[in-house]
Amino acid sequence: MSDSTTNTSDVLALDSLLTSEELALREKVRDYTTQRIRPNIARWYEDAVFPQEIAPELGELGVLGMHLEGYGCPGRTAVEYGLAAMELEAGDSGIRTFVSVQGSLAMTAIYKWGSEEQKEQWLPRMAAGELIGCFALTEPTAGSDPSSMATFARATSDGWVLNGAKRWIGLASIADVMVVWAQTEDNAAGIRGFLVPAGTPGVTATPIEPKLSMRASIQCDIKFDDVRLGPEAILPGAIGLRGPFSCLNEARYGIAWGAMGAARDSYEAALEYAGSRLQFGRPLAGYQLTQEKLVNMLLEIQKGTMLALHLGRLKDAGHLQPQQISVGKLNNVREAIKIAREARTILGGNGVTLDYSPLRHANNLESVRTYEGTDEVHTLILGQHITGVAAFRG
């Protein structure tokens, strides 16, 4: 256990709720972020470059598919994964997003719904960061409503023919394997998942540029033009929307933690600046208005972190429910954006430069707020839970 009394920002002593193993894992990922991400992130963000060379480093760090067991995966707890997500997003949302797309989405889809042959073929090298995966669900006209997707897989005598388009697909242009979700003619099964290896004829992935958010990351448009797949391409266990939704819940859980990392980093940047920046002969931290801003930030970070930890304990106990994940995703991302923006105000004009992190975090969090379920979608999930009435349509 840890004594948090020396950390004035951990006013609730939340570190005391973590085990020694959890604290050690957090420090390991925090050290990596400090040494590898922080010195380079401003340049990666400015140049709109995803540093693909860190993939095997993250594999060695043990954060790719870290909640999965076997097949070369680390087999860590949900809380440990959450702590890793928090530390990585304190560096940048784009780096945490890579880990999420790789592990929570692509690897989880193969792990939960793939055949034994598919698992053996892809998971060990994905866990090591040697191969990269993507998760192709969202379409140009079907973001929040995946049930209306138009991408279609037609069964043939020797496999499948895939046609359609996807949009905002992370890592697609560098992926070695795409997990693609498509409608089928099977009314009972409906939507199915397929594994599409890189280089398959008829697949075109185009990075979306320019972007104002998630610049140290890759999101793509994908087109599928008469893509022919063998019978081995289908994920045998994924039938209907349960397949992709089970993966989305894994990603949404990680976001609840990650957003608090971006918030904490924004707060710490503002706190440090306020202590050293002199205005009217005294530090900014000595003014009541500045202290109020810092206190309000700290309150939401502590509450959001406590919420994420509670969700993690529920998940590890096998009791976490989708509506509880929605609470974490909706609340923590919403509050993190407020914190990042407020932190920028303490930095004044200097806060609009890449010398400081808050505005970069705020820009990134606009994407985090949108993907894996918008505020509106999670509000409706919770609304249905508390009223018993689905209000998604009409």
Rank of each mutant, 00 (worst) to 15 (best):
E272F: 03
G275L: 14
S276M: 11
Y287N: 12
Y287K: 13
Q288W: 01
A270W: 00
Q279E: 11
Y287T: 11
G258M: 14
A274Q: 05
S266E: 05
A263W: 01
A263G: 04
L271K: 12
Y287W: 10
L294I: 11
L284I: 09
L271D: 02
G258A: 15
G275Y: 02
E268W: 03
Y287G: 15
Q279I: 09
A269H: 04
A256P: 08
G286I: 10
E268V: 13
G258I: 01
G258Y: 00
L294C: 07
A270P: 02
Q291C: 06
E300A: 12
L298D: 03
L289T: 04
R264K: 10
G258T: 12
A259L: 10
S276G: 12
R282S: 04
A285C: 06
Q288D: 06
A263P: 04
T290R: 05
W257V: 15
A274F: 02
A269T: 13
K293C: 11
R264M: 03
L278G: 00
Q288F: 03
G281L: 10
E292A: 09
R277M: 14
L271S: 05
R277T: 15
M260E: 07
G275C: 14
E272S: 06
L289D: 08
P283H: 05
A274M: 08
S266K: 00
Y287E: 12
A269Y: 02
K293I: 13
S266Q: 07
L294D: 07
Y273F: 14
G281T: 09
I301N: 06
S276N: 14
R277K: 13
G261C: 11
A274E: 08
M260K: 15
L299C: 01
L289S: 05
A263Y: 01
R264A: 07
K293V: 13
W257D: 09
F280P: 00
G281P: 06
V295E: 04
L294K: 10
A262G: 15
L299G: 00
V295C: 05
R277Y: 05
G281N: 12
T290C: 09
N296M: 11
W257T: 15
Q291P: 02
